[in-house]
Design a protein around this nucleic acid. Sequence first.
DNA 1: GTCTATACCGCGATAGAC
DNA 2: GTCTATCGCGGTATAGAC
Lengths: 210, 210
Amino acid sequence: MTDTPPVGARRGRPGHDRETVLRAAIDLFNERGYDATSIADLARELGVTKSAVFHHVASKEDLLSAALDEALTGLAAATQAAAATDSGSTDSGSTAYERLHATVAESVRILAAHLPAVTLLLRVRGNSPVEQEALRRRRVIDVELAGLVREAAREGDIRSDLEPELVSRLIFGTVNSLVEWYRPDGPVSPDDLAAAVTSLTFEGLAPRAT
Amino acid sequence: MTDTPPVGARRGRPGHDRETVLRAAIDLFNERGYDATSIADLARELGVTKSAVFHHVASKEDLLSAALDEALTGLAAATQAAAATDSGSTDSGSTAYERLHATVAESVRILAAHLPAVTLLLRVRGNSPVEQEALRRRRVIDVELAGLVREAAREGDIRSDLEPELVSRLIFGTVNSLVEWYRPDGPVSPDDLAAAVTSLTFEGLAPRAT
DNA sequence: GTCTATACCGCGATAGAC
DNA sequence: GTCTATCGCGGTATAGAC
């Protein structure tokens, strides 16, 4: 046997692969913004030339597209999973309140697990077809979430003196704002964060019985 | 008397002035992002050439600087005003709870009144000295807000089972997330919005006695 | 798979005429 | 106050050698 690795296996030893480039790109996009980040910046970060980067990806926008897809897939799964806590048909074993509670918690966990990609998603403005498509997919998720809030209000398990659309925007505005400061390697674990967010959202700031 | 306007007064009839340019710039920066917006875009929006824009402003960054200053001045005033509801020295007539409540409401109102400038501020990443200075001033405000939350918890008027820093970040994360969707010309007035945010924040989602 | 070299374009900003 | 014209730079992306 020789000392060379199996030729049949996927190799790429000398340099980087697409995934490496993508991770570095997402980090840079988040640090400086997508438009303010050049391929030259990315190449410098990876220690190669611009041309080497273009060997792995078709275009700069290609990197953005992949990152947004990761975030959207995760968030869509979060809403789906929590909604399928039971749901089924007309009236199931789970209440809308329970599903809303689970969705908020799961959204926080997904956000923490895919923080860089989700951060990028939340900053997209719709400057290109790629960004517009991402915004469209985001809107679909937002509509589902608003429906869940409306349902919980109709079932009488949450207050109904405020518009469900408004409540939904405030709740998930709180969740989304986490990308501005939360770091998974900090003192607060993702599960602790999810618990704090849900507790504050559902119970408010009132002093608790000890 | 002639039909020409007073020559001594500030005039500029044929074209635009610095304020016009600034308003248009802030809107474009928010729509597409600062880096993605070129002076040519701005000139096109105003119906003039790039050179005409540079007649009114020294640089593109000059526009950003002015916008960030507007937002920061407003927000600093909001925290100051609400904190000075009484405060004074050691123990005054107002509790930290009351001051926190007033600060949240006032922050929402300022955000609504200066929505474009505040939106821009909240998207700044620190890419240049101008942006870094803005982030520094933001941080000062954030520290004051966190102190207010800590004080209210110490006085026993809000729950103390969660870290004040965490609570502060969540509350003002909710407030800041308003820039992502709120429009003052929509169905919700700034005062209604401030009432909804404070109510949801302080009282939570629990059904209310009717 | 990575390199050098380069085409091509749009950017921010300036000079000087009107 | 706005224009035309232009500079110099850095952007994305490509071609072809190694």
